[in-house]
Design a protein around this nucleic acid. Structure first.
Length: 358
RNA sequence: GUGGGAGUAGCUCAAUUGGCAGAGCAUCGGAUUGUGAUUCCGAGGGUCGCGGGUUCAACCCCCGUCUCUCACC
């Protein structure tokens, strides 16, 4: 009995449902990033109103603070943060990339110098999976090595070999009850390496497969080429997850290539910096033109922000650095991303997935 | 009225012994892709209160003047 079923197709694009221990997830799906047991600026209740069926948490950050054992003792991550729908946890593999100046990689694992107190923190595949089991996430990611996109080919191959070895060790651990595990395909922008690594990771029995190491500095066109070539080759009966990507255009394009799941900090991070996503592109609320603009951020948008407030009000909150700004802006941007995924699902189920209108 | 202090970017202030006038904030613009992000980068903006003088050269020294401020009368 598969946990994932594809229910409709339009070209390479698929619409389906992933069954998790905390409910079904309709794909294609965008998963808001909640690294530290919170989607920044939003309460779990705010999130519920926006309607995502799954959000992210992070192994490295939660293990450092408040600690995986502490969260487990308090009843697990769902209970800890008051979130009753699904959670996917990243393994800490991305921190091997984003914190590469603070860590040392060996064949057994990675030693981080904590960015909080400088203490040494050891992450191995076994420990990363144990932490995720303690957190009780619905989907746990294998511990991988994500290299920079401009790394020499030989370094990419090293990262692939390490990621495969770590994937074997990750899948050999005991998951939390009902917890799914996803493997991660590396290979940089080299199509032959991607295919080779997909062969290795795809054979290990993961519940889903992810493309890692994209959106980490390479040009969008190059990323699109990799996705267009590799996504359709990922096993058709399992969910396909493009990690960390991306802009609305990136996501729409990847859905067209057959990707089912996405996460990205962009809607929430950009919100906090005054960048609001609208269908026509984006709006920088700090720009002077919005100080007297009585219109909502986006006409017809059902989010709390657009339903109740003007651009002028948002501009005022931003300039005054009022805390409400971060909440309203984050809610709006997530609404935009979640709507994008909803539209994609509707298009695919209607049998026609249009190319990106951008 | 007398004595002291201060006048430099929109604001608060720097500028060695006289040597091309700077910073922070603000303004304007740009970045942001499995969050070390309430972050980072860039740009515009000055008759150095005003008028004289000394000097090759003055924000800086000298004279006059105006304004603010503190103390005293």
């Amino acid at each position: 009995m598969s946990v994932f079923r594809v229910e409709a197709r339009a070209g390479e694009a698929r619409a389906g449902v992933l069954e998790t221990a905390h409910g079904p997830v309709e794909t294609p799906v965008f998963m808001p990033v909640g690294t530290q047991a919170t989607v920044k600026a939003l309460s779990s209740d705010d999130l519920r109103r926006l309607g995502p069926q799954i959000i992210l948490g992070n192994t490295y950050h939660l293990a450092l603070r408040p600690g995986a054992e502490r969260i487990a003792a308090l009843g697990g991550l769902h209970k800890f943060m008051g979130w009753t729908s699904a959670i996917l946890t990243d393994s800490g593999g991305f921190q091997v990339f984003s914190l590469r100046d603070r860590c040392k990689i060996d064949e057994d694992g990675v030693t981080f110098r904590s960015h909080i107190d400088g203490s040494a923190q050891r992450l191995t595949p076994e420990r990363a999976m144990q932490i995720q089991a303690l957190l009780g996430s619905d989907v746990a990611m294998a511990f991988d090595h994500c290299p920079p996109s401009d790394a020499p080919r030989a370094d990419i191959e090293d990262a692939m070999a390490r990621t495969t070895a770590w994937a074997r060790r990750s899948i050999a651990t005991t998951p939390a009850p009902g917890q799914l595990r996803f493997g991660i395909v590396q290979g940089g922008t080299h199509l032959d390496l991607r295919r080779r690594h997909l062969g290795e990771i795809g054979a290990l029995g993961f519940d889903g497969l992810a493309l890692g190491g994209l959106g980490v500095g390479e040009a969008p066109e190059i990323m699109y080429d990799v996705i267009a070539a590799v996504a359709p080759e990922l096993p058709a009966d399992r969910p396909r997850y493009l990690m960390g990507v991306g802009t609305p255009k990136d996501i729409w394009t990847a859905i067209g290539a057959g990707v089912d799941m996405f996460d990205c900090v962009m809607p929430t991070r950009n919100a906090r910096n005054g960048h609001l996503f609208v269908r026509a592109g984006r709006l920088r609320i700090a720009n002077a033109q919005y100080r007297d603009d009585p219109r909502p951020v986006e006409e017809g948008c059902p989010c709390e922000c657009c339903a109740n407030y003007s651009r002028a009000y948002l501009a005022h909150l931003f300039h005054a650095e009022e805390l409400l700004f971060y909440r309203l802006a984050s809610a709006h941007n997530l609404q935009h991303y979640l709507d994008l995924a909803r539209r994609a699902r509707a298009c695919i189920r209607a049998g026609a997935f249009p190319t990106a209108p951008w």
